[in-house]
Simulated assay, not measured.
Amino acid sequence: MQKFSLLDLSPIPEGQTAADALSNTVSLAQAAEAAGYHRFWLAEHHNMPGIASAATSVVIGHVAGATSSMRVGAGGIMLPNHAPLVIAEQFGTLATLYPARIDLGLGRAPGTDMATSRALRRHMAPEDSFPQDVQELIHYLGDTPADAPVRAIPGVGTHVPVWILGSSLYGAQLAAHLGLPYAFASHFAPDMLAEALAIYRASFQPSAHLEKPYAMMAAGVCAADTDDEADYLRSSQYLAFARLRTGKPGKLPAPTHDLASQIPGAVMAGVKHALSVSATGSAATVKQRLSGLIDTYQPDEIMVTGMIHDSAARVRSFQIAAEALTDLRVA
C-alpha cells in the first residue's frame, strides 16, 4: 500500500441539516489534508435523506477551494445518469480551476431508486452503454482536435484521471480492458473483492493512461480512544444501513448502546457482513485490522470511509486511521 485516501458521503446527522453536513465535509477535508490523506472523494447519491453530496461536482469544487494540495474527486459519478459531455465539461472546469488535483471515478449503478433514475435521465435507455460512454468521456478530456464537431470547453486537454469503480467483476474487467485504475467498493460489497482484484491484475492491458495495474480497495473505519467507544460510535452506521436495507432511509441516527432492540437479528447479520471490510476500535485495534486487510489484498492504495454522528468524533476517527496508515505505508 503506497497511499491512503478518504471517501466522504457528506452524511446528514439526525438533528442537523444539509448545510451542516456540507460544513462538516469541509472541516473533515481540511483535517484529512493535514493528516496526510492523498485524496478526498465524494459520491453521487440521489433522493437520500441522509446524504448531502447529490450535486457531486459542486461539492468537489467547494472542497477543493477549501484545501490546497490534496487531490479531490468523485468516488464516484454515476455515469448512466449523465451525458458524457456534461461530465467532461464539469470536471474539465474543476481541473481548470484546480490543476493536477481533480479525479473522476465512474460508476455504472444509478446511485438511487428507479423512480429517481427516471427523474434524472428523463428517459431510460434499454441498452447498457457504459463502456462506450466512458470512452466518449475520456475522448472529451483528451487532446480533441480543434476541428472536432463536439468539444468540451473547458475539458479538452485536461486529461483528468479517470477511474473505474465497481462492486462486482464487471468493473474489474472493463478497467483492465481500458487500462484504467480500478477502485473496488469493498466497504459495502465485500464478497467479490479478491476475485475482482485478481481479474483486474491478470487481464490488465497497458494504455496511454496507465502502464501497469493500479488497484484501490475501500474499507470502513471507526476509531476512537477505546474499543468500546468506537463500537458505540459505529452503531450509527449500522442503524443507518439497516434502515436503508429495510426501506426506511433517513438521516444518520445517533449512536446507541442497544442495537439488538432496534435491528432484527437476521437484518443485523446481513448488515455486519456487508460492512465487514472495516476496522473498528482503538488506535491499536484499527492498525491491526487495517494491516491484516492490506496484507491480504495488497492494494496499491486504500480508501477509508465511515459515518459517525458527531462531527468532531468523525474527524478524530480519521486522524487515528491516518496515523495507523502512515505507519503501514510502503514506500
Score class of each variant (00 low, 15 high):
residue 224 A to G: 11
residue 17 T to K: 07
residue 211 E to A: 15
residue 39 R to F: 14
residue 282 S to Y: 14
residue 168 S to Q: 01
residue 3 K to A: 01
residue 33 E to V: 02
residue 118 R to K: 13
residue 77 I to H: 03
residue 48 M to T: 06
residue 325 L to R: 13
residue 136 E to T: 15
residue 211 E to R: 07
residue 60 I to C: 01
residue 262 Q to C: 02
residue 217 M to G: 06
residue 205 Q to C: 12
residue 166 G to V: 13
residue 184 F to D: 05
residue 279 A to K: 13
residue 170 Y to C: 10
residue 266 A to C: 00
residue 90 Q to I: 08
residue 230 A to D: 06
residue 166 G to Q: 01
residue 265 G to P: 04
residue 227 D to W: 02
residue 81 N to H: 06
residue 126 P to R: 06
residue 297 Y to R: 11
residue 318 F to Q: 00
residue 214 Y to P: 07
residue 192 M to G: 05
residue 65 G to W: 05
residue 295 D to Q: 14
residue 244 L to F: 01
residue 92 G to E: 04
residue 316 R to S: 11
residue 279 A to F: 13
residue 237 Q to F: 10
residue 262 Q to L: 10
residue 214 Y to A: 12
residue 135 Q to W: 00
residue 126 P to F: 01
residue 42 L to P: 01
residue 179 G to Q: 04
residue 154 P to Q: 08
residue 155 G to E: 11
residue 130 F to V: 13
residue 249 P to N: 07
residue 269 A to M: 12
residue 13 P to I: 14
residue 74 A to R: 02
residue 198 A to K: 01
residue 85 L to Q: 05
residue 137 L to D: 05
residue 201 R to S: 05
residue 105 G to Q: 03
residue 61 G to R: 00
residue 19 A to L: 13
residue 100 A to R: 15
residue 183 A to V: 12
residue 131 P to D: 10
residue 285 T to W: 01
residue 158 T to L: 01
residue 327 D to Q: 15
residue 5 S to A: 10
residue 143 D to L: 00
residue 88 A to C: 06
residue 281 G to R: 08
residue 103 D to V: 03
residue 134 V to K: 07
residue 124 M to R: 09
residue 240 A to G: 04
residue 143 D to R: 06
residue 230 A to R: 06
residue 134 V to D: 06
residue 64 A to M: 04
residue 244 L to A: 06
residue 94 L to D: 05
residue 321 A to Y: 15
residue 181 P to E: 05
residue 285 T to G: 08
residue 3 K to W: 12
residue 65 G to M: 07
residue 247 G to H: 13
residue 319 Q to P: 03
residue 179 G to T: 02
residue 233 L to V: 00
residue 7 L to R: 03
residue 47 N to A: 15
residue 63 V to Q: 01
